[in-house]
Amino acid sequence: MSSPEIERLIGLLAKLPGLGPRSARRAALYLLKRRESVMTPLARVLNDTADAVGICGTCGNLDANDPCGICADPQRLGSQICVVEGVADLWALERAGAFAGRYHVIGGVLSALDGVGPEDLNMTGLAARANEPEVEEIILALSATVDGQTTAHYITERLDGADVSITRLAHGVPVGGELDYLDDGTIAVALKARRPV
């Protein structure tokens, strides 16, 4: 049917999240029809990005520089480190623009089912950073799931000897959320974490 090169392109596109073989075929056709305006620049950007971007040796963020832009930024607060599961969570927090400190990406959560143990996560670097004199607070921004909170408790135990305060994000009613649509677990947690107004 198609040439091997096109089939290879379709095969690789189909590996992207959200794309199956049919949509990959459509995307390949789209790219081939717009060779100059989309395909060649995209190929160049993919190549450049693959060459340039790496993992920050300090926090685990993805960036073209090591240390990354956030770690190297003197305007960011060195006293606060926000621990996140992945780079997507770091990006979400940056989008919110509510945090001015630095991050630490642990690269997943402990999961007995998936066989993810502490040795699979970026924990050693976190323990070292927590012992730096300028660090005062470690904020655990992990999912409110069984695995996420198991990881949060593990980190708390691991950082037991460090002279830092350990906090976590609040659990409860989301902004714009209606009580009627919330599950009973969220309502119970929100009630437990109520505070005076």
């Binding site: 909170q149 198991t150 009973d184 119970a188």
Partner: peptide, 28 residues
């Protein structure tokens, strides 16, 4: 469809959370 969320009540307590996951892992 949810009836009751037992996990939400123990998320904040490391020991009870470990107890819950231990029991469920043994069953699974």
């Amino acid at each position: 469809e949810a009836i009751h969320g037992f996990s939400a009540g123990v998320l904040d307590d490391p020991l009870r959370l470990k107890g819950l996951t231990a029991a469920l892992a043994l069953l699974d």
